[in-house]
Design a protein around this nucleic acid. Structure first.
Length: 570
RNA sequence: GGCGCGGUAGCUCAGUUGGUUAGAGCGAUCGACUCAUAAUCGAUAGGUCGGGAGUUCAAGUCUCCCCCACGCCA
């Protein structure tokens, strides 16, 4: 038994995530966590909401609520949807938790002691009307270069010239539209990432088995231009972790907060504390401190490619800079983007399917199966309703669902709703067992290395073996001449149902639970030995014929959904 | 403009350190079966592996140049 710490990139609090976000981190992380648990490993699977920063403040203002209230509500909404998708977090925390506040401040203090933080005085644009400093992207104006009237503070989208906010003519706040802007001096803390650049480069180089997507992004940031740059870790905002040096005030930094990208990864650690404080576990240190038992922990992070720089560089720089006994990530599984029907998912334009909407139209397992079997591992992938309909109908309804249906109904009509008697398995069954054993080894191999698409293909192949078997032994024919032999064949079929319930659980947990319940098999350990597994249900073991496991998606539904989700979300 | 990931059968994709007639699923066609959600199983379908040049006994798989799509950055 091994110990696995698994984290999914933490979703931002602002709004409900779309299917692309889901398949890029939380869903594959859940697949892996479920699989490892079933294999008998000790797993701690953590996720949280990322709650700080300007977008949260603006969203709260738009909703007419205090930002803390807004975040609390949205956290609950996201938690409920995550539960709907059967994401099996051991804890779903919040980056705004007291635990994270304290830990983030402690980290900053320690980094300061290590000489890795420097203070920088810089000029930033302040909006009197908004009463806040404006990040570059919240400033618009006329480009001094080409005259384009909606150039952003950092760049003109029309002529692509790089800009400084102070270059803009008639600069205005995109929040309020106010032009009452001024430049003010403000002091910020910078994390001296450049000081640990070589250490990080060496560390990245040692990770030969990481996905190319992960290491190529990291190396680009390490080598581009002057290499890894120091990074500001504080902001002039009200909503966030107040800047402190441990428990002490930080002179001249009053009223400022840490930058969201500094405190968010630390929430991975704080979340383990929240998990303990919520009474769900104990000794969080043995997951995170190598001097407290975390030496034998394998830590795996899941994320979309946009998050890779922060997880390969910024957060490791923080951990390394601490120079204490904090656990560093062992493997980073990153994903490309899922596109929606020829374009991108768009949160702002409401284009594509969002997590809450998905659950409104179909059960979680449909989405889990399609998304995981099309996970954007090697390149961007594409969601189309045609693909979704045909693949789900074929794989889940026809191959798996119909298998369950045909064997249970046949048994009921020819024998009873109990496993029939019959002779021991013969050569054909032994061949099936050998084939299943080989396929299971492939499945496990791909699951162990987090090759999600290949794992899905292997699982499907295991389902197909059941149909091939029934087709070749044809118990409906055998029954006419040799009912005893047919009984044995049916017994095998019913045992396969139970086996599929066990093996499919990481992908489709609800359907798996239903199958196992129908087979009256509460105890469902991962099989070490297929021969034993298909002898689990003995003659006389009662089962029930369940309703359709997976209904099919109709052409009308497909057409209606395609139209509904192409446009704008309310 | 720089960089990154890709460009393999109608579609979605696999193709390890270069090596037998380039694979899978879906779709299509034909056949088998009839227990089942008109489900299943089998067979077939001739893709210049984006284009060109090169290295090699041998390249989809390495080198160089070019084209296309997407993304990131300046």
């Amino acid at each position: 038994m091994a110990r696995h710490l698994i984290t999914s990139a933490i979703p931002y609090i602002n709004g409900i995530k779309h299917l692309g976000n889901l398949v890029g981190s939380q869903l594959p992380a859940d697949l892996y966590a479920r699989y490892l648990r079933q294999r008998g490993h000790e797993v701690l699977f953590l996720c949280a909401t990322d709650e700080h920063g300007t977008p949260a403040e603006l969203a709260a203002a738009k909703a007419g609520k205090p930002v803390a209230d807004y975040c609390a509500e949205m956290h609950d909404v996201q938690a409920e949807i995550a539960a709907g998708f059967k994401l099996s977090f051991d804890h779903f925390g919040r980056s705004s938790s007291p635990q994270n506040h304290k830990l983030t401040q402690a980290f900053a203090g320690r980094l300061s002691d290590q000489g890795l933080i420097r203070e920088v005085t810089e000029e930033q644009v302040y909006s009197n009307a908004d009463g806040r400093f404006l990040p570059d992207r919240y400033i618009e104006g006329t480009c001094p270069n080409c005259g384009f009237d909606s150039a952003r503070g950092d760049q003109c989208d029309n002529c692509t010239k790089q800009l400084d906010p102070t270059d803009l003519i008639d600069a205005r706040s995109t929040i309020s539209g106010s032009t009452d802007l001024e430049v003010r001096e403000t002091k910020h803390l910078y994390l001296r990432q450049s000081a640990v650049k070589d250490q990080i480069a060496k560390w990245i180089d040692s990770k030969a088995d990481w996905p190319i997507l992960t290491t190529s992004i990291a190396k680009k940031w390490l080598t581009d231009g002057d290499g890894l740059q120091d990074r500001g870790i504080t902001r002039d905002l009200a909503w966030g972790v107040p800047v402190k040096n441990g428990d002490a005030d930080w002179p001249s930094m009053e009223g400022k907060v840490f930058y969201v990208w500094f405190d968010a990864p630390i929430e991975y650690i704080a979340c383990a504390q929240e998990w303990v404080d919520a009474g769900k576990g104990n000794e969080w240190e043995r997951w995170w401190r190598t001097d407290a038992g975390a030496d034998d922990v394998t830590y795996t992070q899941f994320m979309g490619k946009d998050n890779v720089p922060f997880h390969t560089l910024s957060f490791p720089a923080t951990i390394m800079g601490m120079d204490e006994d904090w656990k560093l990530v062992d493997y980073i599984k990153s994903f490309n983007y899922l596109n929606y029907d020829g374009g991108q998912f768009s949160t702002s334009r409401g284009r594509g399917v969002f997590m809450d909407q998905a659950l409104e139209i179909l059960p979680a397992d449909y989405w889990r199966w399609w998304l995981l079997s099309h996970a954007p591992e090697s390149s961007d992938a594409e969601f189309t309703w045609e693909s979704f309909q045909t693949d789900v109908n074929k794989d889940l309804a026809d191959v798996l669902g119909n298998f369950i249906s045909r064997i249970t109904k046949f048994c009921r009509s020819k024998f009873s709703e109990a496993v029939p008697e019959g002779p021991t398995y013969g050569p054909t069954e032994n061949q099936l067992i050998a084939d299943l054993t080989a396929k299971l080894a492939e499945y496990q191999g791909h699951m162990d290395t987090m090759e999600v698409r290949k794992s899905a293909a292997d699982l499907r192949a295991i389902w197909v073996l059941g149909n091939e078997y029934l087709q070749s032994v044809a118990p409906w024919s055998t029954f006419k001449t040799d009912p005893d032999q047919a009984a044995m064949q049916v017994r095998m079929g019913l045992n396969l149902c139970r086996l599929y319930g066990v093996l499919s659980a990481p992908f489709i947990p609800d359907a798996s639970a239903d199958i196992l319940a129908a087979m009256n098999a509460s105890d469902a350990p991962w099989p070490d030995d297929i021969a034993a597994a298909v002898n689990t249900l003995q003659a006389g073991h009662a089962f029930t014929v369940s309703d359709i496991t997976f209904r099919k998606i109709t052409d009308d539904e497909r057409a209606a959904w395609a139209e509904k989700f192409a446009g704008t979300r309310d």
